[in-house]
Each structure stands twice: as structure tokens, then as C-alpha cells.
Amino acid sequence: MNRMLKILFFGLVVRPIVLLALGLNIGNRVKLPRGGPAVIAANHNSHLDTMVLMSLYPLKMVHLIRPVAAEEYFMKNKALAWFSLNVIGVIPLSRMFSKDVDQLFAGCRSALDAGDILIIFPEGSRGQPGKITKLKRGLCYLLQGRKDTLVTPVVMHGLGKALPKGEALLVPFNCDVIIGDSIAVSDDSKGFMNNLSEVFENLAQQCLTGSHYEN
């Protein structure tokens, strides 16, 4: 990953677009993790989700923010793979589950060991705007035995309308980014994911652009 390329891209391209085109209501920004190892777990409606979350950090920290993304999409050709790895700093993850758990999460765990902050979307893929789908347990498998790594839940609303799935044209739109208190992953993976779902629902109530999310 090229640190300077990442800083230039976010400083000259992403942040100006986010600040000028989107009306962001950011709630509890101080609750974002300021150092790693840490995980940001967010709902997912748009490719803008990752860009907005990374833009919340100062440029001097942006190289530490590592989005975990689908290998099948972001590694599908050489140009996209180079950009994803060297400019965005993506950690590719196969959604085909052809590997064992240790192999599957090797890149994520190495990044956490290095003190990075991962962005993970527990829904697994982009859903419909205004709807949070069932959360998958991969987050629990990743953090099993890692008591040093807390999860910061984030709910976003409106980004799925600003850049809908399958569209390339950005539409100016008011959006919410609401950050919750960091929580530790428990040994009870089902209980933890149920708790995270409840936290998402509670954070969604704080969104100004939408009163609630459907489940």
C-alpha cells in the first residue's frame, strides 16, 4: 500500500467530493477509534460508505484505515486490483468461503497485529437503502481470542440514495453517520450478533434523514 498515494487521493479527490456534494450529519464522531487494533462495523448500502467513513479521519491517519472488501469484485481485473490495494488499502476477502477460517482472515489479522483500524460490513454485501439485512458471524470468527480489539458500530443513512447500487452518478443528498460506543466481541457469537443488531437499530433512531431502518 502506497501511503502517499492514499493521502493524496483522499485529500484531493474524496474529501472535497464528500464535503461539497453530501450534507453529512455526523453523530458522536469522538467515539471513532483513534488507534488500532480496532474494527468499525457499519451497515452497507453504497460504495460511498467506505469513502465517507475513511474521510472522517485526518489525512495523517488515513493510511491506518483498512476496508475489508470482496475479493471477487475488487480484484476482478489488474487495474482495479492495483487501485484497491495501493490507493484505498483494501484487504480482499473471498466470499466464496473456499478457505479455512485462518486462511480467510489472515490478511485481516495481520493488519490488526500492525495496529490498523478495519472497516467491516457485517451484512456481507450492499443492501437496499433504508434496510439492514441479517448480520453474518464472520466478525466473531475474525476476532475470536482477540480481547485487545474492540468493535465500534456505525449506522449510515442516505448514502444508498446518494450513490445507489449499480449507479455511477453521485446525487447530492443529506446523509447521516451515527457512531456508537465500542463493544467487545463475546464468546457467544449468536448473542453478540443479536446485540450488534440491536445497537444498529438504536443508532438508526438517531438518524435525521430517516426515522428508522427496516430489518
Rank of each mutant, 00 (worst) to 15 (best):
M1R: 09
R3C: 14
R3G: 13
L5F: 15
K6H: 10
I7P: 05
L8K: 12
F9H: 09
F9V: 10
G11A: 11
R15A: 10
I17K: 06
L24I: 00
G27K: 02
V30L: 14
V30N: 13
L32M: 01
G36S: 05
P37N: 07
A41T: 04
A42D: 11
N45L: 13
L48C: 03
L48Y: 01
L48F: 03
D49G: 07
T50Q: 06
M54G: 01
S55T: 07
Y57I: 07
Y57S: 04
L59Y: 04
K60Q: 13
K60M: 14
M61E: 08
V62E: 03
V62R: 03
H63I: 08
H63Q: 11
H63P: 07
P67K: 08
E72D: 04
E72Y: 02
F74R: 06
M75F: 08
K78F: 11
A79W: 14
A81M: 08
W82V: 09
W82R: 12
F83N: 03
L85H: 06
L85K: 10
N86S: 11
I88A: 06
I88W: 05
G89K: 01
G89T: 02
V90Q: 02
L93V: 04
R95E: 07
D102C: 13
Q103E: 12
Q103S: 11
L104N: 06
A106L: 10
S110N: 12
A111C: 06
L112R: 00
L112F: 00
A114Q: 11
I117D: 01
L118S: 06
I119Q: 04
P122D: 05
E123D: 05
Q128T: 14
P129S: 09
T133K: 15
L135T: 06
R137G: 14
R137E: 13
Q144Y: 11
D148L: 05
D148S: 09
V154I: 09
V154C: 07
V155L: 12
V155M: 13
G158Y: 00
L159E: 01
G160T: 02
K165Y: 07
L169A: 13
V171M: 15
F173D: 13
C175W: 03
C175N: 07
I179V: 10
I179L: 06
G180E: 00
G180A: 01
A184W: 04
A184P: 02
D187A: 08
S189K: 14
G191H: 05
M193Y: 10
M193D: 12
M193H: 12
M193T: 12
N195H: 15
E198S: 13
E201W: 11
E201F: 12
N202R: 13
Q205N: 14
Q206C: 09
C207R: 01
L208R: 14
T209M: 03
T209Y: 01
Y213N: 09
E214S: 14
N215D: 15
